[in-house]
Design a protein around this nucleic acid. Structure first.
Lengths: 144, 144
DNA sequence: CCAATCCCTACTATTTTACTTGGGTATCGT
DNA sequence: ACGATACCCAAGTAAAATAGTAGGGATTGG
């Protein structure tokens, strides 16, 4: 039950973009430097997010990346699904999967994984980038 | 966000043992045949469950495996933790992990993973093998 | 023009997964 | 006693996924 660094880094990067929303494009170097991870690797992850329409890019000097939508309209679930694939602990509870478990009679366990999937989706689809920014601000104030 | 076949097979095997609880030991061959998977591989998984105290074994002819406790006292979470390791989408929300994220200032995303972890654990620790047996029986009746 | 950026494809080392192989050991029924 | 039925144990291994690296090309602001 792990997510890979893709999802981990990706959500952090998107959070970083959310914090700069409305303040012009943020270059890769800034995002990567902040997280102390490989620029080139992060670039690939963001490429996926761009193709999925979550991020837009500005090329050339002073360019960088911007959120394609308002932070309130981007849920963590959107990001995770792009980078990690469909949220489904086992294949047979994947919605995109057309051929449902042929031996469903032996598959009483399926109900369990379905419940797990639903609960993960509930959480990830209930948290937006805007929520995370609010949370971060609250923590800042507590430190005063 | 996938579990491996270990957890998948393991839970199915334990469910099978739960259905035979109180009816003597169930040999590996029966369990594996039912699931159409490699006997030898399943053997390794059950070995783990035995070492963890969830299953006991009876050697020799007419031997096999038995649940070590009442099905109501074994939660799916117990099984998954043995076979998949601690339930934590990212390392830094693993309870066993002593050194907490040193750069927690950059780790606003941590709150998200913690919520995911809690929700998965809630589900997995709320379902016992006895619950699954009850569920299976109910489905049987619906088919009449 | 040129430096700062994003864009794209391919390659690679490491780790994990999902087994397979090949034995050994205990017990029951006869 | 003995052989069939089981569990027990340690290694090996092929394939896939992960987590990057490497190297160059295309845009654009100053």
């Amino acid at each position: 039950m792990k997510i890979s660094t893709k999802g981990h880094y990706g959500v952090q990067a998107m959070f970083e973009l959310a914090r700069h929303y409305g303040m012009g494009p943020v270059p890769l170097k800034t995002i990567a430097g902040r997280q102390e991870i490989s620029e080139h690797y992060l670039e690939q992850l963001i490429a996926g997010l761009r193709k999925a329409g979550l991020v837009s890019s500005v090329r050339g000097a002073q360019g960088g990346y911007i959120l394609a939508r308002d932070p309130a309209d981007i849920k963590v679930g959107d990001i995770v699904r792009v980078l990690e694939g469909p949220i489904a602990p086992v294949e047979c509870v994947n919605d995109n999967e057309t051929e449902h478990c042929l031996r469903s009679e032996f598959c009483i366990t399926r109900g369990v994984w379905e419940k797990v999937k639903d609960s993960i989706e509930d959480v990830l689809d209930s948290i937006s980038l805007a929520d995370m920014c609010k949370e971060a601000e609250k923590e800042m104030k507590e430190c005063e």
